[in-house]
Amino acid sequence: MQVTLLGTGDTTGTPTPDCDCDTCEEAREPGDATRRRLRERGIDASSGVERSRFSVHVRNECTGEALLIDLSPDFRHQFLTHDVGLPDEAIVTHIHFDHLDGLGNAYRLFDDLPVYAANEVDPVTDESVADTIRRKYDYLDRVTVRDRTPLEPFETCGFEVTLVPVEHPPMLCYGVVVEDPETGAKLALTGDTNYAVPDESRAVLADADLLLADAIVPAHLCEHHPMGGDHHGPDGVPRTFGTKHMTREGALALADELDAAETRLVHLAHYYPVEEAFEEPLAIDGEQYHL
């Protein structure tokens, strides 16, 4: 299983357009210290550092098929920038634009693109994620929406995949587990979520070779959120930023509980202070893993 992180940023990405904060400036023109740290991770930052909107490419190295998890609005840029092939099939975790609106790129690129999404009806929208995609992209006759029941494994691209309910109020959202039945490799994504991931979902996400965990900001920035932080740990540190996303500390606590072999933090905002923004285990676009 080859996992490529095509997009590791939040809804505005890093650098954010027309933003002159220290972190965005460092992303555009990394200093020597940042370049050295990234070079140690095998990343060439000479042309800048990017965290575009979230998307993950998973290639089955046995069959040659590729699965795309979430369709970023930066779809075209991501596939021009990174050396991976177009997906054979895709999954959408929830209907927020930064995870869905790249689907419009299917026009003229695919003969048929099966897109898997949850069939659970959201009381906020009165339709499921699958229904929303079907309605919003009804003009894309090359997209076939395939409804799937959360927590019930299904097969795609030679993988066994499970949609895992998480907490991203007010709308329904899902994490994803991808397992290779041939090799036993396991990838887990928390999806966009706060720290209150249900116990049943935690059990499915556990023991991954690689965990990609939502960690939008460090916990000390909760003081700037109108709702502060939530789900405080024993040390009093908030594990949720506001209501929708985990803090860095929350994501690392969850990773420890899930006993992940390796963890990368994703869905990162440019609000990370520059001295923290490019430190481990915060991911950047283009990282690639073989599980």
Results as ranks from 00 to 15, higher is better:
residue 4 T to A: 06
residue 5 L to Q: 01
residue 8 T to D: 08
residue 9 G to K: 00
residue 12 T to Q: 10
residue 16 T to R: 15
residue 21 C to W: 04
residue 21 C to L: 05
residue 22 D to A: 12
residue 22 D to E: 11
residue 22 D to K: 14
residue 26 E to Y: 04
residue 28 R to G: 09
residue 30 P to F: 05
residue 32 D to N: 12
residue 33 A to S: 14
residue 37 R to A: 13
residue 37 R to F: 12
residue 42 G to M: 01
residue 47 S to A: 15
residue 49 V to H: 01
residue 50 E to Y: 10
residue 51 R to D: 07
residue 52 S to I: 10
residue 52 S to F: 07
residue 57 H to S: 10
residue 57 H to V: 01
residue 59 R to N: 00
residue 60 N to Y: 05
residue 61 E to H: 01
residue 61 E to T: 11
residue 62 C to F: 11
residue 64 G to F: 09
residue 71 L to D: 01
residue 71 L to V: 09
residue 74 D to G: 02
residue 75 F to T: 00
residue 78 Q to G: 06
residue 79 F to Q: 05
residue 79 F to A: 05
residue 81 T to K: 08
residue 81 T to V: 03
residue 84 V to G: 08
residue 88 D to E: 07
residue 90 A to R: 08
residue 93 T to V: 14
residue 93 T to Y: 09
residue 93 T to Q: 15
residue 96 H to M: 13
residue 96 H to F: 13
residue 97 F to S: 12
residue 98 D to C: 07
residue 100 L to Y: 05
residue 101 D to K: 08
residue 102 G to N: 06
residue 103 L to P: 00
residue 108 R to I: 09
residue 110 F to I: 05
residue 115 V to W: 08
residue 116 Y to T: 00
residue 117 A to V: 09
residue 118 A to K: 09
residue 121 V to D: 05
residue 122 D to I: 02
residue 125 T to F: 07
residue 125 T to A: 12
residue 129 V to M: 03
residue 132 T to N: 11
residue 134 R to E: 15
residue 135 R to V: 15
residue 136 K to E: 12
residue 137 Y to S: 00
residue 137 Y to K: 06
residue 137 Y to F: 15
residue 138 D to V: 13
residue 139 Y to M: 14
residue 141 D to H: 15
residue 142 R to K: 14
residue 142 R to H: 15
residue 144 T to W: 07
residue 145 V to Q: 03
residue 150 P to I: 04
residue 150 P to T: 12
residue 151 L to M: 12
residue 151 L to S: 13
residue 153 P to Y: 12
residue 153 P to W: 08
residue 154 F to E: 02
residue 154 F to S: 07
residue 155 E to C: 04
residue 157 C to G: 03
residue 167 E to S: 14
residue 169 P to C: 01
residue 171 M to H: 14
residue 173 C to L: 09
residue 174 Y to G: 00
residue 176 V to D: 10
residue 180 D to G: 04
residue 187 L to R: 10
residue 188 A to M: 02
residue 190 T to C: 02
residue 195 Y to V: 02
residue 197 V to L: 01
residue 200 E to W: 07
residue 203 A to Y: 04
residue 204 V to M: 08
residue 206 A to E: 10
residue 208 A to N: 02
residue 208 A to L: 03
residue 216 I to G: 11
residue 218 P to N: 09
residue 218 P to H: 07
residue 222 C to S: 11
residue 222 C to L: 10
residue 223 E to F: 02
residue 227 M to D: 10
residue 229 G to K: 02
residue 230 D to W: 15
residue 232 H to P: 05
residue 235 D to R: 06
residue 235 D to L: 07
residue 236 G to F: 03
residue 239 R to D: 06
residue 240 T to F: 10
residue 242 G to K: 02
residue 243 T to D: 11
residue 247 T to Q: 01
residue 247 T to E: 01
residue 247 T to L: 06
residue 251 A to C: 05
residue 256 D to R: 14
residue 256 D to I: 09
residue 258 L to T: 15
residue 262 E to R: 07
residue 263 T to G: 03
residue 265 L to E: 02
residue 265 L to R: 00
residue 268 L to C: 01
residue 268 L to K: 03
residue 272 Y to W: 11
residue 273 P to R: 04
residue 273 P to V: 00
residue 278 F to H: 04
residue 280 E to N: 10
residue 283 A to H: 04
residue 286 G to M: 06
residue 288 Q to N: 09
residue 288 Q to E: 12
residue 288 Q to T: 15
